[in-house]
């Protein structure tokens, strides 16, 4: 098979996206309710955050606005996984019922085709919420603004996204080997809730686990240090873009390995 270029894939993505949006629009009530549900989730998350900090002014040397910054950072970095990779949630059913076989017969990359089929617009609400939180806390901390900082911010947000995408891909791919992999995916999904806390609150053992074995700390903590504490950035923060790409590549390989060995259900 000839390797297709990036432009080809971009064109295809837009075409599939347009179809997906059309089909979503035919369930308008569902779309509106889901969007409201997403906004609810974010507001509730914020309220519990606010209640917590009304009682406790700081956590482990992290002030209110710094924690808010972490919170906003994690929300923004979780947007791509919500928007572009939401089809991972249905992978289990597709594999189980045998529908998945249809993706294997297309003359384009299976992973790409599968993920491009669904674009989750709800994620955009989260993005807006996250950006507002991020900018608000940025101003309140008085970080200042330079083009270099913006560049750093973008690079490290993408890094954080890659880690979360990688975690979800790997979790979703487990369904190729075990039945009822919902719990694995749910576990990975819950990581996002833990991402918004500074890793320094944990004991050294768990700091190690959450850094290297389950890289939750890379979803918000390490990348945001580059902006928040620019004078003492640990080496791991600078390494995080490489780690992000490596994890993403690894998860892609696992996913594709499962897809290649998929034998269908025979129906």
């Amino acid at each position: 098979m000839k390797r297709k270029g990036l432009r080809f894939y971009a064109k295809i993505y837009c075409k599939i996206l347009a179809q997906d949006l059309k089909s979503k629009m035919s369930y308008r009530a569902d779309f509106i309710i889901s969007t409201i549900g997403m906004i609810f989730t974010n507001i509730a998350g914020f309220i519990s955050f606010w209640i917590l900090f009304r009682n406790f002014p700081s956590i482990n040397g992290w002030g209110y606005y710094e924690m808010l910054f972490l919170y906003g950072f994690s929300l923004v970095s979780l947007t791509p996984v919500q928007c572009f990779f939401d089809n991972n949630w249905s992978l289990r059913q597709h594999v189980y019922t045998g529908d998945f076989i249809k993706y294997c017969f297309r003359p384009i990359n299976t992973f790409f085709y599968y993920q491009s089929e669904i674009f989750d617009i709800k994620g955009l609400g989260q993005l807006a919420f996250g950006l507002i939180t991020l900018i608000y806390s940025w101003i309140k901390i008085g970080l200042g603004f330079t083009p270099l900082m913006l560049l750093k911010m973008i690079v490290f947000l993408i890094t954080a996204s890659l880690i979360m995408i990688a975690l979800q891909n790997a979790a979703a791919a487990t369904c190729f080997w075990i039945q009822n992999s919902f719990y694995v995916l749910d576990l990975a999904y819950r990581f996002r809730d833990y991402a918004k806390y500074p890793i320094t609150i944990f004991s050294p053992v768990f700091r190690f686990i959450f850094t290297f074995l389950m890289p939750i700390a890379f979803i918000a903590y390490y990348p945001s240090l580059v902006i928040l504490r620019p004078d003492k950035v640990p080496l791991l923060s600078w390494l995080s873009p490489i780690i992000g790409i490596a994890f993403f590549w690894l998860s892609y390989k696992i996913w594709m390995h499962g897809a290649k060995n998929y034998s269908g259900t025979g129906s």
Partner: peptide
């Protein structure tokens, strides 16, 4: 009435 599951359920759960 709504034929929406995810949205309804997440709202309930959050509240």
């Amino acid at each position: 009435y709504t034929e929406s599951i995810w949205g309804i359920n997440i709202m309930k759960q959050v509240i």
